Amino acid sequence: MIKTKGIMLVFGTQIHIVTFIFIVLEFCMFFFQILYYLFRPQDKMRLWYLLLLLLFQFYNITGGLFPDPKINIPVPTQLMIAYGSGFLMASFFPFYFYKAFDLKTLRWHALYGVPLFLMLPYLIFFVIVYAINGKLNVDIKFGMIVPFIYAVILLWVIFKAIRKKHETERNRNQYLEEIAMYCAVIPWLALTFFGLVESSQLLEVLCTNTGIVILSILFISRSIRNARVEYEQLLEFNTGGAQRNNLEEMFRYYKLTNREIEIVLLVREGLTYREISNKLFIAGKTVENHMQNIYEKTSVKNKVALLHKLFPS
C-alpha cells in the first residue's frame, strides 16, 4: 500500500489518523463485548464476533504501521506480517458468515476452500518465494491470481447463501438484515483488490472497515432483539409463582442452557419450529439441533414426552 505522508499520521508512525480512529473504536467494542462474553460464555455468536474484531484490529495496526524502517523488525518480515494479516482476516470472513448467520452452504468453503485458495497462496508466494527472491512486486503479481479469482467466486457463493437463507426464513425483520449482509460482504472482496494494486492507506481503511461497521450494526441489532426475547421469557417465567422454583430445579437438573429453556417454554406454548425460529431470530435447523440436545438430556424422544416430564401438572 502507499503510505500517507504528512500531519495526518499519529505518534510519529505510519498510521493514518482515520486508521487510528478505527483501531480505538474497535478496541472499545472488543473490550465491552469480551466482558459480556465472559459473563455468558455460551454465546458462541459473540465469540465469532470477538474473533472478527480482533482480526480487524490486527489488520489495521499492521497495515498502518508496516513497512516502517524505523521499527526494529526487518522490512521483508514486516511486509509478510502486513499481507498475512489481510489474508488471515479475509480467510476468517467466510467462516464468520458460516457460523454467525448459520449459512450451511458455506461450510466447505469456510473449512477447506479458504485454506486452499487463500492461505496456501499466501504461504507459497508471500512467505516462501518472497523470502527467496525478495521481489515483492513479482510475488504479488503471481500470488494474487488464485486468491482474487477465488474471492470473486466465493462472493457469489455467499450472496447465494444469504438469498437462500432469507427465502426460506423470511419475516418482516429480515429484509433490512439481508440487504445489510450484502453490503457487509462487498468490502471483503476489496481486500484482494487492494492486494493487487497500490492504494492509499486512507482509501483502503475506509473501504475494508465498512464491512465491520455494518456487521457490528447487525450484531448489536440481533443482540438487542435476543435480549428483548429473553426478557419477555423471564417475565413470563417469573409469573409462575411457586411453580417457577420447581421448573428452575428441573432445568438445572437436566442441565438445560438458557437457549434450550427458551425453546422448551415456546414449545410448551404450542409454537412450531418455524414460529420459534422467527421469534428467536435463529435458523430452523438450529431449533431442531437444540431440540435434539434437549431430548438427549431429558431422555425423551418427542415433544409430548418432553412436556409430560418437565410440566407434569
Rank of each mutant, 00 (worst) to 15 (best):
I276K: 13
M8Y: 09
P187F: 02
K303V: 12
I220P: 05
P147T: 06
A100E: 12
R163H: 08
L120W: 03
G63T: 11
F125M: 05
L215T: 08
I15T: 01
F237A: 04
Y295I: 03
S91Q: 05
L196M: 15
Y254A: 00
Q42W: 12
I282A: 09
L51Q: 09
T272G: 14
V267L: 14
Y122T: 02
P74N: 04
V229D: 12
I34F: 00
E249I: 04
V213A: 08
L103P: 04
N302V: 01
G211R: 03
V114K: 05
K279M: 00
L307Q: 03
N278S: 09
F93V: 09
W48H: 14
V267Q: 06
L25E: 05
R163C: 04
Q42P: 10
K44V: 10
P187I: 00
T19I: 01
R222G: 05
N293H: 14
S91W: 07
A227Q: 13
A131E: 11
T239K: 15
Y273K: 13
G64Y: 08
C183Q: 11
I217D: 01
L203T: 11
V114I: 11
P147M: 11
N258P: 01
G211N: 02
E177R: 13
E232P: 02
E26M: 11
I263F: 01
Q78C: 05
Y59C: 04
W48S: 14
G12C: 04
V197D: 04
E269V: 00
L35F: 09
F95T: 05
D43A: 10
M181P: 03
I15L: 12
P147N: 12
L52F: 08
G84I: 03
E178I: 00
L53Y: 06
E198Y: 12
T192D: 04
M80V: 10
P69N: 02
T286F: 03
Q14I: 00
Y83R: 12
L136C: 07
I34Y: 04
Y112H: 13
N137A: 15
L123H: 00
M119Y: 04
F11N: 12
E269F: 00
I124N: 04
Y37I: 12
Y253H: 14
K309P: 09
Y122D: 06
V146F: 08
Y36I: 13
G270I: 10
I149C: 09
I71F: 02
P121S: 06
R222M: 11
I162A: 08
L265C: 02
Y175T: 11
A110G: 07
T168V: 10
Y273V: 07
F159N: 14
E269A: 07
I23T: 06
A100G: 07
L191P: 08
I145H: 10
L310K: 02
F219A: 10
E230M: 15
T210R: 10
R268N: 07
M45S: 02
K309E: 11
L306W: 12
L55R: 01
V264A: 01
L9H: 12
T192E: 14
T105V: 03
L203G: 06
Q201K: 08
N72S: 12
K99Y: 07
S223T: 07
F58A: 07
V267K: 09
V197I: 14
K3N: 10
C207I: 13
L307C: 02
I217N: 01
V127Y: 02
I153R: 01
E169K: 15
G284P: 12
P69Q: 02
I294F: 03
L196V: 10
W108G: 01
K135T: 08
K164M: 14
Q57I: 15
